[in-house]
Amino acid sequence: MKSQVDVAVMIGSGVPASLQALGKRVCWVVLVNGERRGTAFASRNEAQECQTAWMEQLHGADRPAVARQAG
């Protein structure tokens, strides 16, 4: 079975208190098969790096890690 690994954005009250205390009102999380894995990230780039790591772990380094996303 092929697992799906996505990056999702959280805004407002969905942002963890630790990031809200730093003035952040948006964060990104990694979802594996729709379930959040790991921590919230302050930047989309950090979340995409984590996404790549999950893809490599789940599908092996010999397959394409991530399809490039616009944005």
Rank of each mutant, 00 (worst) to 15 (best):
M1H: 03
M1G: 15
K2Y: 06
K2H: 05
K2A: 03
S3N: 11
S3R: 08
V5K: 04
V7K: 09
V7A: 04
V7F: 06
A8P: 02
M10I: 00
G12Q: 09
S13T: 05
V15S: 11
P16F: 07
Q20C: 07
A21Q: 10
A21D: 00
A21P: 00
L22K: 14
G23V: 11
G23D: 06
G23Q: 07
K24D: 00
V26H: 02
C27F: 02
C27A: 14
L31W: 01
N33D: 15
N33W: 03
N33C: 13
G34E: 01
G34R: 00
G34V: 07
R36M: 12
R37T: 00
G38H: 05
T39L: 06
A40K: 02
F41N: 06
A42V: 11
A42P: 00
S43Q: 09
S43P: 05
N45M: 09
N45K: 08
E46M: 11
E46R: 05
A47E: 13
E49Y: 10
Q51C: 05
A53E: 13
A53C: 09
E56M: 04
E56G: 13
H59I: 04
H59A: 03
A61Y: 09
A61Q: 12
A61R: 15
R63S: 12
A65Q: 12
A65H: 14
A65N: 06
A65L: 13
V66F: 02
V66Q: 13
A67E: 09
R68Y: 12
Q69F: 02
A70V: 13
G71S: 11
G71Y: 06
G71R: 07
